[in-house]
Computed example of a mutant assay.
Amino acid sequence: MTHPARDPHAALRLAEALIARPSVTPDDAGCQTLIGERLRAAGFVCETLLRGPDDFRVTNLWAVRCGARPGPTLAFAGHTDVVPPGPLAQWTSDPFTPSHRGGKLYGRGAADMKSSLAAMVVAVEDFVAAHPDHAGRIAFLITSDEEGPSVDGTVRLVEWLQQRGERLDACIVGEPTSVERLGDTIKNGRRGSLSGRLRVIGVQGHVAYPQLARNPIHQLAPALAELVAIEWDRGNDHFPPTTFQVSNVHGGTGATNVIPGDVVVDFNFRFSTESTPQQLRERVHGVLDRHGLQYALDWTLGGEPFLTPPGPLSDALTAAIRATTGVTPELSTTGGTSDGRFIARICPQVVEFGPVNASIHKIDEHVEAASVDTLAAIYRGTLERLLA
């Protein structure tokens, strides 16, 4: 039987095996068991951390292999869970049956992010086979709760590692970061996310007698216009300016002749390192108070921003990408949040790199089939530059 590390399409085959497991959040569906078996065979010590209630049990994997010589700890991180496939009738092929058409691999999780996980595992298998006495340590942090609430996934794994005194030196998160072609974009940071639910309180009444009521929508409108117009900051060399966006507005009884008693507005900040959550909260409250609103406001901090300035990890990954594909990647901090925000608590260098993201969360999600093994070569090239 051909050893996985010697099969030129080992990463593609493992990606297919992972896609075939319907691991919709938080169900791991055996993905981590398969990955753990491969890693144990490569000399890793694997530990499973189960978290969450019985009806939403999250599976987390921590795996580590110690080298023969001193050196840094390089971790690979990712998630085995996927979003629901949506209407099955709209898929060209079963979302949990890996399928090939036109040189592409189709299936839920193909891009986000089972191809990355497969490439990471095979890259490590190949690297360890070639360098059994490598320097430092290689680690994996894998969860089944990234696409869901992210309450009992990577954040719990990181807390558990903190309690044990673990610290990482560098981490590659396998998020699908490439835009046009594999290798064109590395995420070296992410903006923070701060959400608010604002309830402005009025007095319900008949529209024909507004003097007997107080319309919260009318009261809110000038304050909301001011919030929308504010320049929160100008960003910096690494981050675009902080943005404020309203996502939902709920008000009224459904009747056209009733002034509502309240209006509820959901909004979100994606913020740079030029603003802090406390500063943003204070500025919003200042506007609302100045307009004399009666209101309640609940805040949710989804994540702090993190940034890895150019350095050893991004240099090694960039060199590996260039050597493998001929592409010079751009360092970017655009996009939403990721589990990198949690890992940054115990790791000074966190970057994200993976396949093209054009089809993520869509019907007929896919990647270029050849890119999966290319991605494994890039990850292995990074290991060679840091731990060989």
Score class of each variant (00 low, 15 high):
residue 6 R to H: 14
residue 13 R to N: 09
residue 19 I to N: 10
residue 20 A to W: 06
residue 22 P to I: 04
residue 23 S to T: 13
residue 27 D to I: 09
residue 27 D to T: 07
residue 28 D to S: 09
residue 31 C to D: 12
residue 46 C to Q: 10
residue 54 D to N: 07
residue 64 V to T: 11
residue 66 C to A: 14
residue 70 P to C: 07
residue 70 P to N: 06
residue 74 L to D: 03
residue 74 L to R: 04
residue 75 A to Q: 04
residue 78 G to E: 02
residue 78 G to Y: 02
residue 80 T to Y: 03
residue 83 V to H: 13
residue 87 P to Y: 03
residue 90 Q to R: 12
residue 99 S to F: 13
residue 100 H to I: 14
residue 100 H to F: 15
residue 101 R to W: 05
residue 102 G to S: 08
residue 102 G to A: 11
residue 103 G to Y: 06
residue 105 L to H: 04
residue 105 L to Q: 03
residue 109 G to N: 08
residue 109 G to D: 09
residue 111 A to C: 10
residue 111 A to D: 04
residue 113 M to I: 03
residue 117 L to S: 00
residue 117 L to Q: 01
residue 120 M to R: 00
residue 120 M to A: 05
residue 122 V to F: 00
residue 127 F to V: 00
residue 130 A to C: 04
residue 132 P to L: 02
residue 133 D to V: 01
residue 138 I to E: 01
residue 139 A to T: 09
residue 140 F to G: 06
residue 142 I to K: 07
residue 142 I to V: 15
residue 144 S to R: 07
residue 146 E to V: 11
residue 148 G to Q: 12
residue 150 S to K: 08
residue 151 V to L: 14
residue 154 T to I: 11
residue 155 V to D: 03
residue 174 G to C: 04
residue 174 G to H: 03
residue 175 E to Q: 06
residue 175 E to Y: 08
residue 179 V to I: 15
residue 179 V to K: 10
residue 180 E to W: 06
residue 187 K to Y: 10
residue 190 R to L: 10
residue 192 G to R: 01
residue 197 R to S: 15
residue 200 V to M: 09
residue 205 G to V: 03
residue 206 H to G: 05
residue 208 A to F: 01
residue 215 N to E: 10
residue 229 A to G: 06
residue 230 I to Y: 00
residue 231 E to L: 08
residue 240 P to F: 05
residue 242 T to H: 11
residue 246 V to W: 11
residue 248 N to D: 10
residue 254 G to V: 13
residue 257 N to H: 13
residue 261 G to E: 08
residue 263 V to F: 13
residue 264 V to I: 14
residue 268 N to R: 14
residue 268 N to L: 12
residue 272 S to F: 09
residue 274 E to Q: 12
residue 276 T to G: 04
residue 285 H to Q: 15
residue 287 V to K: 00
residue 287 V to G: 00
residue 293 L to P: 01
residue 298 D to M: 10
residue 299 W to K: 07
residue 302 G to P: 14
residue 306 F to R: 08
residue 310 P to H: 10
residue 312 P to C: 14
residue 313 L to R: 05
residue 314 S to G: 11
residue 315 D to C: 05
residue 316 A to D: 02
residue 324 T to S: 01
residue 324 T to L: 02
residue 325 T to R: 06
residue 329 P to G: 07
residue 338 S to P: 04
residue 339 D to Y: 05
residue 341 R to E: 02
residue 344 A to D: 10
residue 346 I to E: 07
residue 352 E to H: 03
residue 356 V to C: 15
residue 358 A to K: 08
residue 359 S to V: 01
residue 359 S to C: 06
residue 365 E to G: 03
residue 368 E to V: 12
residue 373 D to N: 13
residue 376 A to Y: 00
residue 376 A to S: 13
residue 377 A to T: 01
residue 380 R to V: 00
residue 386 L to I: 01
residue 387 L to T: 00
